[in-house]
Design a binder for these strands. Sequence first.
DNA 1: TCAGACATGTAACGTGTTACATGATTCT
DNA 2: AGAATCATGTAACACGTTACATGTCTGA
Lengths: 181, 181
Amino acid sequence: MSTPHAILIALLEKPSSGYDLARRFDRAIGYFWRATHQQIYRELGRMVDTGWVAVVDDDDARAVTRRKVYRVLRAGREEVVRWVRDTPLGVEERNAFLLKLRADAAIGPLGLGDELSRLIDEHRARLQTYREIEQRDFADRVLTNARQLQYAILRAGILQEETWLEWAEDVVPLVGVQVER
Amino acid sequence: MSTPHAILIALLEKPSSGYDLARRFDRAIGYFWRATHQQIYRELGRMVDTGWVAVVDDDDARAVTRRKVYRVLRAGREEVVRWVRDTPLGVEERNAFLLKLRADAAIGPLGLGDELSRLIDEHRARLQTYREIEQRDFADRVLTNARQLQYAILRAGILQEETWLEWAEDVVPLVGVQVER
DNA sequence: TCAGACATGTAACGTGTTACATGATTCT
DNA sequence: AGAATCATGTAACACGTTACATGTCTGA
């Protein structure tokens, strides 16, 4: 759902060709957002049509090649801002929130404070739910092997939420509360 | 890719109607695996065709309704075992591994020890990569706000891997090393 | 000259999502 | 009587994945 935005943000960080993008999505970016080269070319084509990106003259001295470097147009930048502001994420979409942080780093403060606060509340609620299930279903001293496995699955969820909350609380000061100006 | 297997495993735990499955995937199961009712009905239809599941006579006394309860046939159970054994997962597919644990809990020891060991190695390697990036790019005392955000994104990855490894090491004794018999 | 990386694309297919559609049962 | 929940499905579309296809450039 956010692949075009992931591409836009990557292009904001650095104008690139489809090929370069594919490599970047295989390396650094790929650790939290996946996109194959087919998706990338498809989305680049669409985004040229909608006027979000454009091909720049490749000043890379080798105009001989068919290499096409894309940069983000104003409409594309505005779309990123719109997406960051107007697309509330759910607790599942951890990586989309990382994408928003990346956008914030690339184009300046976008006011992520409110959304982060809300997400913290939602993660806390989910952790609470998990802990209630833990108390209710796994309080026994002795558990069968099957029960221990089910408990392990629940613990994966508990640890995940605890870790996310720990991380998020460190991030709060970085996105802060949006200051009106 | 594993939605049919998620459904099979849910049905192994408890034969259910499509509607019941949809609710279960909205609650407990939904915390780590999502499926809408349209996907569920589509997959149930396919799995009836392939002979993995069948509709049982609804002994729920109200045969008046169109309620259809599905149970897993032997071929379906064998498919789950095959999937668990022969589908090596990548580090990204955390939730698919939880699914495998759930299968292990439902149908007995499937020999997940080897895969877990391999995944632990891969997660350790990834954590190592993250730590190298951390040393290389974020060792400076003073970071601009944008750099701090980029560092936060990396820390999300580091914490995630550390937590997973901590969890996985607790799980090792539960899946153990497969004993030949 | 040959292999491997660079570079861009199309085609087919499978899966997931959103909207539409229908009707029975149960509770107030 | 009406609303909410139970219950199952179809249709259209969007998105992601895999395979196919082509050609250039660079270094050994």
